[in-house]
Each structure stands twice: as structure tokens, then as C-alpha cells.
């Protein structure tokens, strides 16, 4: 049965009419615009940017924490925002700020506490896995950022459509149909489209935006037909593996994505049973540290 034939399928107009809540996609943090303006200038003014970030205590603390994280393995510790900016570089700093800002960009974040915790867990394990796997061209901080942003479209759709929770449950439990196909049967769009639009709007790198768009697609993991280039494919596979580990270790947030995408992820990352099990054991303490 096609969408048009199904009387239960809401019409496009009908769905759009549901959009009565005055909710917008979270605007890009102004500090990101300022950093990009500096990046595009001939002589970036790091002190000016550091001053701007320092006015926001939690952002400043988050950036220093990022620079000192084991992801980067710097020999020394950043003690100020300026030092963090210098150590990370402007482009990585920008992504770190986007990651720090994402959750608080949603005014009702507390309502989705569990969702954000799972996203943070997947992001943390993605960054860690990228370090362990050492795939050429895949950076741990990119894997972290991707892990955090890849499902943010879900929150936007949950806030917009009361029935989206049901669609989500159906998509999570389907062992065959692609996740986004189930969403698109009920809505005129899906969370990967929304997530990649937000990522583009926040000036995340193209590889990450494209990976968000295709992260539920099996063909995207297959080199011959994938619309993603090498780092993008690996970002998708790493985050999917991270999600599998989170689910295996916590028993929560069940989905059938590993059933559908797991074999392709394992083939791409060359993960045999033993290696996967070793990662599962090693990941447990990392999850406990996720805030």
C-alpha cells in the first residue's frame, strides 16, 4: 500500500497544521558566529574570542574540560580559555562549543533527560572507540560530535508532534524496515533530515552533516554505493557500535538498529566477536563517568 492509499496516513497539510506550537529549531549560538568570523579574517583575534567565551562560565569550563580530555592527549593542561583555544585550534573549538551548547539550546531539555543522557553516552563511547580503532581520517572529537548530534532531530520532532513518540517506538522495534522509512510513512520528514539541517545551520563539518543524514541507511555503510566518503561511513559505524555497547551495558534504549546495521558496521570496522566483547568490557567504566 502506498502512502497515498493509506487512509491512516496524515496528509502533508494535516501534519503541517499540527505545527501549532511556537517552537523553533535552536538558533546557532552567537559565539559560533563570532569564531567563524574570526576564522575567516586574516588575523584571528584569539583573545577577543576567549573574552567572549569567558563571559559564559559553563561554556568556558566546558571548553577547558574538552581541551584537557584524554581524546586529545595533550602533554599539558589548559588553565584558561585562551590556552584551550590555542591548544584545540579554532575549528575544533567551534565544534566543542556546538557540542556543549546543543543540550542547553533546547529550553525544555529537562523533559528529555534520558534522551540526552543516552546521546552523551553514545558520544563518549564513539570518541573512545575512534581512539581505539585508529581509523585513518576519523578523529575522536569528530566521532564525539557526531555521536552527540546524530539524533538531535528526534527532540525537535518530539517537541513538534505529540504522536511522534508512537512513531519512534514503531521505528525502534521494526527489525526490517529502515528507521527513516517508518518515520516518513507518518511524517513528511524524518529526524535525520532535521538533524542534518540543524548541523548545517550550526556550521558543523560536511562529513558530520552528511553522516547525520545517512546514519540509519544500510547502503551508506557499503563502500560501493555509499553517498558518504570514508570518514563519514566510519563515523556512522562507530556511533552505531557505541549505541550497541550502551544498550548492551545498560539494558536500556532498546532498538533493532544493530540487527539491521550491525553486520555492516562490524565488517567496516573489522570487529570480530572477541574484539567487540573486549570493547564491551572496557567501555563499562567509561559509561559510569558520563554526566
Amino acid at each position: 500500500m502506498t502512502r497515498q492509499d493509506d487512509p491512516r496516513t496524515p496528509t502533508v497539510d494535516g501534519v503541517l497544521q499540527q505545527s501549532i506550537h511556537d517552537i523553533d529549531i535552536p538558533p546557532r549560538p552567537t559565539v559560533i558566529d563570532r569564531i567563524h568570523a574570526e576564522m575567516n579574517s586574516d588575523a584571528p583575534n584569539l583573545r577577543g574570542i576567549a573574552g567572549l567565551i569567558s563571559r559564559d562560565v559553563s561554556l568556558a569550563a566546558g571548553l577547558i574540560k574538552t581541551a584537557n580530555s584524554p581524546c586529545f592527549g595533550f602533554g599539558r593542561r589548559a588553565r584558561s580559555v585562551h590556552e584551550a583555544l590555542t591548544m584545540l585550534g579554532l575549528d575544533v573549538s567551534c565544534r566543542a562549543i556546538a557540542a556543549i551548547s546543543l543540550r542547553r539550546a533546547f529550553p525544555d531539555s529537562a523533559r528529555y533527560e534520558r534522551f540526552w543522557h543516552v546521546s552523551a553516552s553514545v558520544a563518549t563511547l564513539s570518541g573512545w572507540l575512534a581512539q581505539q580503532l585508529r581509523v585513518p581520517g576519523v578523529r575522536a572529537d569528530d566521532a564525539y560530535t557526531f555521536g552527540l548530534f546524530r539524533d538531535c532531530g528526534i527532540v525537535i520532532l518530539l517537541r513538534r508532534f505529540p504522536d511522534y513518540q508512537t512513531v519512534l517506538a514503531r521505528a525502534n522495534s521494526d527489525r526490517e524496515a529502515p528507521f527513516t522509512a517508518i518515520e516518513q510513512a507518518a511524517l513528511p520528514t524524518d529526524h535525520t533530515v532535521i538533524g542534518s539541517l540543524l548541523a548545517q545551520n550550526w556550521w558543523l563539518p560536511g562529513e558530520i552533516c552528511m553522516a547525520i543524514r545517512h546514519h540509519h541507511s544500510l547502503p551508506a555503510l557499503e563502500a560501493e554505493v555509499s553517498p558518504l566518503r570514508c570518514p563519514g561511513r566510519h563515523l556512522v559505524a562507530i556511533a552505531q557500535t557505541a549505541e550497541y555497547l550502551v544498550q548492551a551495558l545498560t539494558g536500556g534504549s532498546r532498538s533493532e538498529e544493530w540487527t539491521k546495521l550491525g553486520p555492516a558496521c562490524r565488517a567496516l570496522l573489522k570487529l570480530d566477536d572477541g574484539t567487540l566483547e573486549a570493547y564491551r568490557c572496557a567501555a563499562a567504566p567509561l559509561l559510569q563517568a558520563v554526566e
Binding site: 503541517l16 523553533d24 511524517l187 513528511p188 520528514t189 533530515v193 532535521i194 539541517l197
Partner: peptide
């Protein structure tokens, strides 16, 4: 999907 996504995101 992108057109609808933009309309939804901008509300």
C-alpha cells in the same frame, strides 16, 4: 523531506 524539514524547523 528537506523542504518539510525547513518549514518545520522554522515553524
Amino acid at each position: 523531506p528537506a523542504l518539510h524539514g525547513a518549514l518545520l524547523c522554522a515553524n
